[in-house]
Design a binder for these strands. Structure first.
Length: 217
DNA sequence: GAATAGATTGTCT
DNA sequence: GACAATCTATTCT
């Protein structure tokens, strides 16, 4: 995907109508993480719709997975959403300054979630750039979990939101969107998790410039 | 392109 | 008090 992408306008009505149903989220977390690559994350805020295509995700599968916040069944005010029904937002604050957005997966009671790590901006790039404090909307808007939350205006206020409602949701990509080849790799920055860090539970669009980190090996 | 340091605060077997 | 599912700027190569 090296050449220029045709600047086709994204139809807001499409993003409203193509909202994924609750049943989309009712599948095992690894399958959901893969299925989410290529879908569109849409946020309705005061300025209207803002959206990006998901190009990178990671699966977290507590209580066994030592990289997950729910490792060992840890259930606190922070992790509570992961124990609830699938298709809700799990937000967390990290490194003293960044928010991250996840989708709860698995059956209720299973603390599984999918971290969204990168988006290709589709709608509202200028708003994103303004929120990110950038002068241009060329690159760097959404290529990282903290960046995409800042660009879309997502934070703790979105904790627990039902993605089947109309404030924050996933949509099918518009007709004619390019097909993405999905690659896998180990997850990013989870070295503390020992052998769990080596599992190929990161899913990304191959050769896509909005992916956050160049995959190793 | 890679490696490093510093920022900054909620969470916590 | 330690650490974190990160980002930015800087300093290399």
């Amino acid at each position: 995907m090296r050449g220029r992408v045709a600047p086709s306008p994204v139809d807001e009505a499409w993003l409203e109508g193509a909202r994924l149903p609750r049943s989309f989220y009712e599948r095992p977390v690894l399958a959901l993480a893969r299925a989410m690559v290529g879908k569109v994350l849409v946020h309705r805020d005061a300025g209207g719709l803002i959206a990006g295509r998901i190009v990178e995700t990671e699966a977290y599968r507590g209580p066994q997975d030592l990289a997950a916040h729910s490792a060992g069944g840890r259930r606190t005010r922070r992790t509570e959403a992961m124990f609830g029904p699938p298709g809700r937002a799990y937000m967390y604050f990290i490194y003293g300054m960044h928010w991250a957005f996840n989708v709860v997966a698995g059956a209720e009671g299973q603390p599984h979630a999918v971290l969204v790590r990168a988006l290709e901006p589709l709608l509202g790039a200028e708003v994103m750039a303004a929120r990110r404090g950038l002068l241009t909307s060329a690159v760097g808007l959404c290529n990282g979990p903290g960046k995409l939350c800042q660009a879309l205006g997502l934070d703790g206020g979105h904790y627990g939101l039902d993605l089947a409602d109309n404030q924050l949701w996933l949509a099918e990509p518009p007709p004619g969107s390019p097909r993405l080849a999905v690659g896998t790799s180990p997850r990013i920055n989870v070295a503390y998790a020992g052998a769990w860090a080596d599992r190929p539970w990161r899913f990304y669009a191959r050769n896509h410039r909005a992916v956050s980190v160049t995959p190793r090996g």
